[in-house]
Nucleic acid binder design. Structure first.
Lengths: 105, 105
DNA sequence: CCACCATATGCGAATATGCGCATAAGGGCA
DNA sequence: TGCCCTTATGCGCATATTCGCATATGGTGG
């Protein structure tokens, strides 16, 4: 893999690597949501949420669509979920390994 | 998903979200490598590489094993590759969409 | 046009990340 | 023990992220 290819992948991962953005992507798997609905996900300023959405949009993970006064966000890359699930499984495995090491040692 | 669960996933993604670390994980899919081998992957200081490896190790993505003077790193979570592949496909889709928008508009 | 609602952006401050240099730490070998 | 090789860590600096506040923008309805 070239460095440039690695950079593309890293940019994608970086766009996802924030708890609020993970929550957003998770919520969008159930269907499109407007900003006002997503705002209930985390205890965060509205402007902050808007910025997180802009980050996801810039990398193409989500797209947006206006409907009257509201803007709805749509998950463009559902496969990104596999990444999240994998990450979660890996975290659990890691925790389990650490726990058994603590028991043994 | 709770905020705590999202934080765990985000930590995992953050650990991967750097081009050098992506290169490391990619290289380790072909088998264990010592630091001196990995050092050839990118034009980076040896201390920097060591730090990147420490980040991957802390989250459980890789583990290390001493063999004589050398330390070998091992990929603990090969499923993480699916995340990388997904990220890459998503990047390509995004680029394609942007390109066709440019053509149309 | 004006008031209002939903969303986005400018700005500054706090914090985190990444880097290189120097150096420490762990281990092999004479 | 002393020297060398491989890898890790302390430190300071530059840059990037994140956040909240204030405010701008786009759209609706009176």
């Amino acid at each position: 893999m070239t460095y440039e290819q690695a950079e593309l992948r890293a940019d994608m991962l970086k766009a996802l690597a924030h708890p609020v953005r993970v929550l957003i992507v998770d919520a969008l798997t159930a269907g499109d949501r407007c900003v006002c609905e997503l705002n209930a996900l985390a205890d965060i300023d509205q402007s902050g949420l808007s910025r997180h959405l802009a980050i996801l949009k810039k990398t193409g993970i989500v797209s947006d669509r206006r409907n009257g006064m509201k803007v709805f966000y749509h998950l463009e890359t559902p496969c990104i979920l596999k990444a999240l699930t994998c990450a979660f499984e890996a975290v659990k495995n890691h925790a389990r390994r650490r726990a058994s090491l603590l028991r043994a040692g």
